[in-house]
Amino acid sequence: MNSLKENPNQYNLLRCIATPLIDYCQFLSFIIGMKQSHPSSKMLILFVLLIGFTSCKNKLPIEQDFSKINYQLVDNDNRTVNFFKDFKGKTIVAGYIFTNCPDICPLTTNNMRLVQETLTEDEMKDVQFISISFDPEVDTPETLTKFAEIRNLDLSNWTFLTGSKPVIDSLMKDVGVVAILGDSTITPSGEKINYFVHTDRISLIDKNLQLRKNYIGSKAEIQEIVNDINALN
């Protein structure tokens, strides 16, 4: 069970299946038992079915509360942002990146874009996409803007955030994202380019700033995130 809890996706899926299963067994016994005598049993079965289909919508447990956490960051337009406070009331899809990353972070970013493109206009209401850099010394607002623009990202409800290194380090600790310096390249001009070994993550945070689910960012299933957003909204 501990290993399942360490893997929230598996754990949530099992909970999602097991809980209604137990409910149904109990309900079915009850229904079958009373069917002979009760004329409206079909209505009761329909009711049970309805509860069953909606029950999954409530199976995104609160994993962590971010409502008491607040960090002053800077967005890609150089504006000061209070994270998380400024986004209260929005369903947040958050990704953690560094722009010197040529493989995993672009995949994570692309998966967020696919979620954005998959949501209908109605489903998109109150959804905010946020990419946060854990390499703030390199990822200035200008760099983040270039990273977004070269990918033709729709920034109408997507913000890129950076900040001072101590603030970012503290934020990453709070959200459980690890970024450790790994390999590096020295350019002919002597510039050192660092690559991070990092948590590969997209997080889904509800309107009350509570973490509801983490996904492996580069491998995330688009439809799963879309379904989860719709379940929260």
Binding site: V178, D183, V197, S218
Partner: peptide
């Protein structure tokens, strides 16, 4: 370069 898994959903890259 190659991208590699480091465990605990950690990913890295090396030449």
């Amino acid at each position: 370069h190659e991208t590699y898994e480091k465990g605990d959903d950690m990913m890295g890259m090396r030449s």
